[in-house]
Design a protein around this nucleic acid. Sequence first.
DNA 1: CCTATCAACTTGCTTTTTGCAAGCTGATAG
DNA 2: CTATCAGCTTGCAAAAAGCAAGTTGATAGG
Lengths: 139, 139
Amino acid sequence: MSKTTKRALSGCPIDYALSVVGDGWTLLIIRDIAIKGARTYAELLEGWEGISTNILAQRLRHLEEAGVLEKRKNPTNWRSFNYELTPKGRDLAPLLSELILWGGKYNKAENPMTDTVTQVRSDRVGFERNILDAESGEN
Amino acid sequence: MSKTTKRALSGCPIDYALSVVGDGWTLLIIRDIAIKGARTYAELLEGWEGISTNILAQRLRHLEEAGVLEKRKNPTNWRSFNYELTPKGRDLAPLLSELILWGGKYNKAENPMTDTVTQVRSDRVGFERNILDAESGEN
DNA sequence: CCTATCAACTTGCTTTTTGCAAGCTGATAG
DNA sequence: CTATCAGCTTGCAAAAAGCAAGTTGATAGG
Protein backbone atom coordinates (compact mmCIF):
# COMPACT_ATOMS: atom_id res chain seq x y z
CA MET A 1 0.00 0.00 0.00
CA SER A 2 2.14 2.84 -1.20
CA LYS A 3 1.73 6.27 0.27
CA THR A 4 0.03 7.83 -2.70
CA THR A 5 -2.19 5.15 -4.17
CA LYS A 6 -5.95 5.22 -4.46
CA ARG A 7 -5.95 5.56 -0.67
CA ALA A 8 -5.50 9.32 -0.44
CA LEU A 9 -7.40 9.82 -3.66
CA SER A 10 -10.57 7.96 -2.74
CA GLY A 11 -11.85 11.23 -1.30
CA CYS A 12 -12.98 9.57 1.91
CA PRO A 13 -12.01 11.76 4.85
CA ILE A 14 -11.10 8.71 6.95
CA ASP A 15 -8.91 7.49 4.15
CA TYR A 16 -7.22 10.85 3.89
CA ALA A 17 -6.67 11.02 7.63
CA LEU A 18 -5.16 7.54 7.62
CA SER A 19 -2.90 8.40 4.72
CA VAL A 20 -1.38 11.10 6.92
CA VAL A 21 -1.41 9.62 10.42
CA GLY A 22 -2.53 6.05 9.83
CA ASP A 23 0.64 4.06 10.18
CA GLY A 24 1.84 2.48 13.38
CA TRP A 25 4.44 5.07 14.29
CA THR A 26 3.05 8.45 13.30
CA LEU A 27 0.62 8.94 16.16
CA LEU A 28 3.28 7.85 18.65
CA ILE A 29 5.52 10.60 17.33
CA ILE A 30 2.70 13.08 17.68
CA ARG A 31 1.96 11.78 21.17
CA ASP A 32 5.60 12.29 22.16
CA ILE A 33 5.53 15.86 20.91
CA ALA A 34 2.05 16.82 22.09
CA ILE A 35 1.97 15.07 25.46
CA LYS A 36 5.49 14.09 26.47
CA GLY A 37 6.96 17.36 25.27
CA ALA A 38 9.62 15.83 23.03
CA ARG A 39 11.12 18.30 20.61
CA THR A 40 14.44 17.10 19.19
CA TYR A 41 15.31 14.18 16.97
CA ALA A 42 17.24 12.58 19.82
CA GLU A 43 14.31 12.89 22.23
CA LEU A 44 11.99 11.30 19.72
CA LEU A 45 14.43 8.43 19.16
CA GLU A 46 14.40 7.67 22.89
CA GLY A 47 10.63 7.18 22.96
CA TRP A 48 9.36 4.24 24.97
CA GLU A 49 8.87 2.02 21.99
CA GLY A 50 12.16 2.36 20.15
CA ILE A 51 11.62 3.58 16.61
CA SER A 52 14.60 3.12 14.33
CA THR A 53 16.42 6.15 13.10
CA ASN A 54 15.77 5.78 9.37
CA ILE A 55 12.06 5.31 9.94
CA LEU A 56 11.92 8.31 12.26
CA ALA A 57 13.62 10.50 9.66
CA GLN A 58 11.24 9.27 6.98
CA ARG A 59 8.14 9.89 9.10
CA LEU A 60 9.25 13.35 10.17
CA ARG A 61 9.77 14.27 6.53
CA HIS A 62 6.34 12.89 5.66
CA LEU A 63 4.67 14.80 8.49
CA GLU A 64 6.43 18.00 7.51
CA GLU A 65 5.31 17.59 3.91
CA ALA A 66 1.77 16.94 5.09
CA GLY A 67 1.84 20.17 7.10
CA VAL A 68 1.47 18.50 10.47
CA LEU A 69 4.92 19.33 11.81
CA GLU A 70 7.38 22.15 11.40
CA LYS A 71 11.13 21.96 11.84
CA ARG A 72 12.79 25.01 13.29
CA LYS A 73 16.12 25.93 14.76
CA ASN A 74 16.52 25.40 18.46
CA PRO A 75 17.18 28.89 19.86
CA THR A 76 19.47 27.66 22.65
CA ASN A 77 21.41 24.85 20.92
CA TRP A 78 22.70 25.82 17.51
CA ARG A 79 23.05 22.28 16.22
CA SER A 80 19.68 21.06 17.34
CA PHE A 81 16.25 21.43 15.73
CA ASN A 82 12.84 21.54 17.30
CA TYR A 83 9.94 19.72 15.75
CA GLU A 84 6.71 21.51 16.57
CA LEU A 85 3.09 20.86 15.72
CA THR A 86 1.43 23.18 13.25
CA PRO A 87 -2.22 24.18 13.77
CA LYS A 88 -3.14 21.20 11.60
CA GLY A 89 -1.10 18.96 13.87
CA ARG A 90 -2.54 20.47 17.03
CA ASP A 91 -5.99 19.80 15.63
CA LEU A 92 -5.26 16.13 16.20
CA ALA A 93 -5.76 16.69 19.94
CA PRO A 94 -9.35 15.34 19.95
CA LEU A 95 -8.16 12.25 18.12
CA LEU A 96 -5.57 11.70 20.83
CA SER A 97 -8.29 12.11 23.44
CA GLU A 98 -10.38 9.39 21.85
CA LEU A 99 -7.41 7.04 21.51
CA ILE A 100 -6.59 7.56 25.18
CA LEU A 101 -10.19 7.04 26.30
CA TRP A 102 -10.65 3.91 24.22
CA GLY A 103 -7.22 2.52 25.07
CA GLY A 104 -7.71 3.35 28.74
CA LYS A 105 -11.05 1.61 28.79
CA TYR A 106 -9.94 -1.64 27.18
CA ASN A 107 -6.25 -2.05 27.94
CA LYS A 108 -5.92 -4.48 30.80
CA ALA A 109 -2.13 -4.18 31.21
CA GLU A 110 -0.44 -2.29 34.01
CA ASN A 111 -0.67 1.33 33.13
CA PRO A 112 2.08 3.91 33.63
CA MET A 113 -0.11 6.47 31.90
CA THR A 114 -3.15 6.05 34.14
CA ASP A 115 -2.74 9.70 35.04
CA THR A 116 -3.22 10.74 31.42
CA VAL A 117 -6.34 8.59 31.13
CA THR A 118 -7.65 10.09 34.35
CA GLN A 119 -6.89 13.59 33.16
CA VAL A 120 -8.70 13.16 29.86
CA ARG A 121 -11.67 11.58 31.63
CA SER A 122 -11.99 14.36 34.16
CA ASP A 123 -10.99 17.35 32.03
CA ARG A 124 -10.90 16.56 28.37
CA VAL A 125 -11.30 20.19 27.38
CA GLY A 126 -8.29 21.19 29.47
CA PHE A 127 -6.21 18.35 28.09
CA GLU A 128 -6.92 19.38 24.54
CA ARG A 129 -6.40 23.06 25.26
CA ASN A 130 -2.89 22.25 26.50
CA ILE A 131 -2.13 20.91 23.04
CA LEU A 132 -4.17 23.37 20.98
CA ASP A 133 -2.85 26.45 22.73
CA ALA A 134 0.80 25.44 22.71
CA GLU A 135 2.83 28.45 21.65
CA SER A 136 5.42 27.75 19.02
CA GLY A 137 6.70 31.02 17.64
CA GLU A 138 4.24 32.64 15.28
CA ASN A 139 2.05 30.10 13.46
CA MET B 1 7.26 -3.76 14.71
CA SER B 2 5.65 -7.07 15.45
CA LYS B 3 2.14 -7.20 16.77
CA THR B 4 3.05 -8.12 20.32
CA THR B 5 6.29 -6.33 21.09
CA LYS B 6 6.90 -3.71 23.73
CA ARG B 7 4.22 -1.73 21.88
CA ALA B 8 1.17 -3.25 23.52
CA LEU B 9 3.10 -3.81 26.73
CA SER B 10 4.30 -0.26 27.24
CA GLY B 11 1.08 0.35 29.14
CA CYS B 12 0.38 3.55 27.24
CA PRO B 13 -3.30 3.64 26.26
CA ILE B 14 -2.47 5.20 22.89
CA ASP B 15 0.04 2.45 22.30
CA TYR B 16 -2.52 -0.18 23.17
CA ALA B 17 -5.14 1.39 20.94
CA LEU B 18 -2.68 1.51 18.05
CA SER B 19 -1.70 -2.11 18.60
CA VAL B 20 -5.34 -3.01 17.93
CA VAL B 21 -6.48 -0.53 15.28
CA GLY B 22 -3.26 1.28 14.38
CA ASP B 23 -2.37 -0.20 11.02
CA GLY B 24 -3.40 1.21 7.70
CA TRP B 25 -6.23 -1.19 6.94
CA THR B 26 -7.97 -1.89 10.23
CA LEU B 27 -9.91 1.34 10.56
CA LEU B 28 -11.00 1.09 6.94
CA ILE B 29 -12.48 -2.32 7.69
CA ILE B 30 -14.25 -0.88 10.71
CA ARG B 31 -15.45 2.05 8.63
CA ASP B 32 -16.88 -0.32 6.03
CA ILE B 33 -18.77 -2.24 8.70
CA ALA B 34 -19.84 0.69 10.85
CA ILE B 35 -20.70 3.23 8.16
CA LYS B 36 -21.01 1.48 4.82
CA GLY B 37 -22.86 -1.47 6.30
CA ALA B 38 -20.55 -4.14 4.92
CA ARG B 39 -21.03 -7.50 6.58
CA THR B 40 -19.56 -10.36 4.54
CA TYR B 41 -16.02 -11.20 3.54
CA ALA B 42 -16.88 -10.51 -0.09
CA GLU B 43 -18.35 -7.10 0.69
CA LEU B 44 -15.26 -6.16 2.65
CA LEU B 45 -13.03 -7.26 -0.23
CA GLU B 46 -14.87 -4.92 -2.58
CA GLY B 47 -14.14 -1.85 -0.46
CA TRP B 48 -13.10 1.28 -2.35
CA GLU B 49 -9.45 0.81 -1.65
CA GLY B 50 -8.90 -2.81 -2.60
CA ILE B 51 -7.43 -4.77 0.27
CA SER B 52 -5.93 -8.11 -0.71
CA THR B 53 -7.60 -11.28 0.45
CA ASN B 54 -4.82 -12.66 2.63
CA ILE B 55 -4.44 -9.37 4.47
CA LEU B 56 -8.18 -9.09 4.99
CA ALA B 57 -8.32 -12.59 6.47
CA GLN B 58 -5.39 -11.79 8.75
CA ARG B 59 -6.91 -8.53 9.97
CA LEU B 60 -10.31 -10.05 10.60
CA ARG B 61 -8.68 -12.78 12.70
CA HIS B 62 -6.72 -10.16 14.60
CA LEU B 63 -9.81 -8.05 15.26
CA GLU B 64 -11.77 -11.07 16.38
CA GLU B 65 -9.00 -12.04 18.80
CA ALA B 66 -8.89 -8.49 20.09
CA GLY B 67 -12.62 -8.59 20.76
CA VAL B 68 -13.52 -5.86 18.29
CA LEU B 69 -15.39 -8.04 15.81
CA GLU B 70 -17.52 -11.11 15.99
CA LYS B 71 -18.09 -13.63 13.22
CA ARG B 72 -21.52 -15.19 13.09
CA LYS B 73 -23.54 -17.23 10.65
CA ASN B 74 -25.57 -15.33 8.13
CA PRO B 75 -29.18 -16.27 8.87
CA THR B 76 -30.31 -16.01 5.25
CA ASN B 77 -27.32 -17.45 3.36
CA TRP B 78 -26.00 -20.66 4.84
CA ARG B 79 -22.53 -20.39 3.39
CA SER B 80 -21.93 -16.78 4.31
CA PHE B 81 -20.79 -15.22 7.57
CA ASN B 82 -21.51 -11.81 9.01
CA TYR B 83 -18.81 -9.80 10.69
CA GLU B 84 -20.34 -7.56 13.35
CA LEU B 85 -18.89 -5.04 15.76
CA THR B 86 -18.85 -5.99 19.43
CA PRO B 87 -19.54 -3.29 22.06
CA LYS B 88 -15.77 -2.74 22.15
CA GLY B 89 -15.80 -2.21 18.41
CA ARG B 90 -18.82 0.06 18.49
CA ASP B 91 -17.02 2.14 21.09
CA LEU B 92 -14.70 3.21 18.29
CA ALA B 93 -17.48 5.45 16.94
CA PRO B 94 -16.08 8.65 18.52
CA LEU B 95 -12.69 7.86 17.02
CA LEU B 96 -14.32 7.58 13.60
CA SER B 97 -16.01 10.94 14.21
CA GLU B 98 -12.69 12.60 14.91
CA LEU B 99 -11.04 11.02 11.89
CA ILE B 100 -13.90 12.22 9.70
CA LEU B 101 -13.82 15.75 11.14
CA TRP B 102 -10.06 16.06 10.83
CA GLY B 103 -9.96 14.45 7.40
CA GLY B 104 -12.90 16.54 6.25
CA LYS B 105 -11.23 19.73 7.41
CA TYR B 106 -7.87 19.15 5.77
CA ASN B 107 -8.47 16.92 2.76
CA LYS B 108 -8.51 19.12 -0.31
CA ALA B 109 -9.44 16.39 -2.82
CA GLU B 110 -12.85 15.99 -4.36
CA ASN B 111 -15.00 14.37 -1.76
CA PRO B 112 -17.59 11.67 -2.40
CA MET B 113 -18.17 11.44 1.33
CA THR B 114 -18.94 15.11 1.91
CA ASP B 115 -22.31 13.98 3.18
CA THR B 116 -20.71 12.00 5.98
CA VAL B 117 -18.55 14.95 6.96
CA THR B 118 -21.62 17.17 6.93
CA GLN B 119 -23.57 14.68 8.98
CA VAL B 120 -20.90 14.39 11.66
CA ARG B 121 -20.53 18.16 11.78
CA SER B 122 -24.24 18.80 12.18
CA ASP B 123 -25.23 15.81 14.30
CA ARG B 124 -22.26 14.02 15.74
CA VAL B 125 -24.31 12.46 18.52
CA GLY B 126 -26.76 10.98 16.03
CA PHE B 127 -23.96 9.69 13.83
CA GLU B 128 -22.36 7.89 16.75
CA ARG B 129 -25.66 6.58 18.04
CA ASN B 130 -26.25 4.89 14.69
CA ILE B 131 -23.09 2.90 15.29
CA LEU B 132 -23.37 2.43 19.04
CA ASP B 133 -26.98 1.29 18.97
CA ALA B 134 -26.63 -1.11 16.05
CA GLU B 135 -28.46 -4.28 16.94
CA SER B 136 -26.49 -7.42 16.29
CA GLY B 137 -28.23 -10.28 18.01
CA GLU B 138 -27.68 -10.31 21.72
CA ASN B 139 -24.34 -8.69 22.76
C1' DC C 1 43.56 27.33 10.48
C1' DC C 2 42.73 22.75 11.92
C1' DT C 3 40.81 19.36 14.59
C1' DA C 4 37.36 17.31 17.86
C1' DT C 5 32.49 17.38 18.88
C1' DC C 6 27.83 16.03 18.42
C1' DA C 7 22.90 16.38 16.74
C1' DA C 8 20.94 14.98 12.89
C1' DC C 9 20.59 12.29 9.65
C1' DT C 10 22.13 8.30 5.48
C1' DT C 11 23.52 4.04 3.83
C1' DG C 12 23.78 -0.94 3.21
C1' DC C 13 22.07 -5.00 4.36
C1' DT C 14 18.84 -8.53 6.57
C1' DT C 15 14.32 -9.69 8.08
C1' DT C 16 9.46 -9.02 8.05
C1' DT C 17 5.24 -7.61 5.98
C1' DT C 18 2.43 -6.69 1.99
C1' DG C 19 0.46 -7.54 -2.55
C1' DC C 20 -1.05 -10.43 -6.21
C1' DA C 21 -2.72 -14.56 -8.56
C1' DA C 22 -4.05 -18.93 -8.15
C1' DG C 23 -5.78 -22.78 -5.73
C1' DC C 24 -8.21 -25.29 -1.88
C1' DT C 25 -12.45 -26.43 1.22
C1' DG C 26 -16.67 -28.07 2.49
C1' DA C 27 -21.75 -27.90 3.22
C1' DT C 28 -25.65 -28.39 0.36
C1' DA C 29 -28.67 -27.98 -3.71
C1' DG C 30 -29.87 -30.51 -7.60
C1' DC D 1 -22.24 -37.82 -6.45
C1' DT D 2 -21.25 -33.64 -8.70
C1' DA D 3 -21.33 -28.53 -9.39
C1' DT D 4 -21.53 -24.33 -6.82
C1' DC D 5 -19.68 -20.53 -4.38
C1' DA D 6 -18.41 -17.83 0.02
C1' DG D 7 -14.63 -17.91 2.46
C1' DC D 8 -10.55 -18.55 2.91
C1' DT D 9 -4.88 -20.57 2.05
C1' DT D 10 -0.72 -20.82 -0.31
C1' DG D 11 3.42 -19.51 -2.91
C1' DC D 12 6.16 -16.30 -4.60
C1' DA D 13 7.73 -11.47 -5.82
C1' DA D 14 7.97 -6.67 -4.25
C1' DA D 15 7.96 -3.26 -0.73
C1' DA D 16 8.69 -1.72 3.85
C1' DA D 17 10.74 -2.09 8.49
C1' DG D 18 14.62 -2.97 11.53
C1' DC D 19 19.52 -2.82 12.75
C1' DA D 20 24.29 -1.27 12.92
C1' DA D 21 27.55 1.54 11.20
C1' DG D 22 28.99 5.54 8.73
C1' DT D 23 28.50 10.56 6.99
C1' DT D 24 27.72 15.63 7.43
C1' DG D 25 28.54 20.14 8.78
C1' DA D 26 28.57 24.26 11.76
C1' DT D 27 31.36 25.76 15.55
C1' DA D 28 34.09 25.70 19.70
C1' DG D 29 38.61 25.06 21.51
C1' DG D 30 43.40 24.85 20.68
